[in-house]
Amino acid sequence: MDVAGVAEGADVAGGAAGPVLLEARGLRKVYGSGASEVRALDGVDFALHQGEIVVLLGPSGSGKSTLLNLLGGLDIPSGGTIRFDDHDLTKASGEALTRYRRDHVGFVFQFYNLIPSLTARENVALVTDIASRPMTPEESLAMVGLGERLDHFPAQLSGGEQQRVAIARAIAKNPQLLLCDEPTGALDSHTGRLVLGAIAEVNRRLSTAVAVITHNAVIAGMGDRVISLADGRIVSETRNAHRLSPLEMSW
């Protein structure tokens, strides 16, 4: 199969990156049944290596959010397998998925999903309270350049600042995997670049594997690899010779 071939080829070619961290094979996700059946994902093979940044590009409805949800253990596939290290996520119980998210995955959402009643520091503490080997909320916020705004509530922060809090919250557990769903979708381009810079910085300093979903093709430049999705399938994969710094990009 074409697509699988491309993905496997990428594996072999991925010399710059570390060992495979997360691997999906033949991933399918079907919503509804019968006439109203929607194939959100239709046979996707995908691998993520330690320390690399992968940008998933695609228009809305292409299945990229569904893929991210499955990779992050937020949802269960209708078919196929996902392996993280030695664990088969497709066979994992709800509790095991909760542990997986708690210990290994950091999420960044388009609309930040901060708890409005908690300050920046406390939002990060949500994670450090339950993670097994977290950094402190202060360290984590300093890493995204928010060391000064620890005790502000989300409503007192700009959109970009809120998203950086969300990144701090996502990385505070020292995750092996950072999944970002349209992290700049609600931001202007300047702020968006700052946020992407923070993500790239995290990747550089912690060698966290990063998957960024976007429909903004410009962002593709920051990735080691760029995977395009359409109609629930991977349609292309390219490898960037060198990653662009988010500050060099413009849209």
Binding site: G72, L74, G94, E95, T98, R99, Y100, R101, R102, D103, V105, F107, F109, F111, N113, L114, I115, P116, L126, V127, I130, A131, R169, K173
Partner: peptide, 13 residues
């Protein structure tokens, strides 16, 4: 959305 975030962060049901 807050509940979803909590679950995504690894809080159990």
């Amino acid at each position: 959305e807050q509940i979803a975030a909590l679950r995504a962060l690894g809080y159990s049901a």
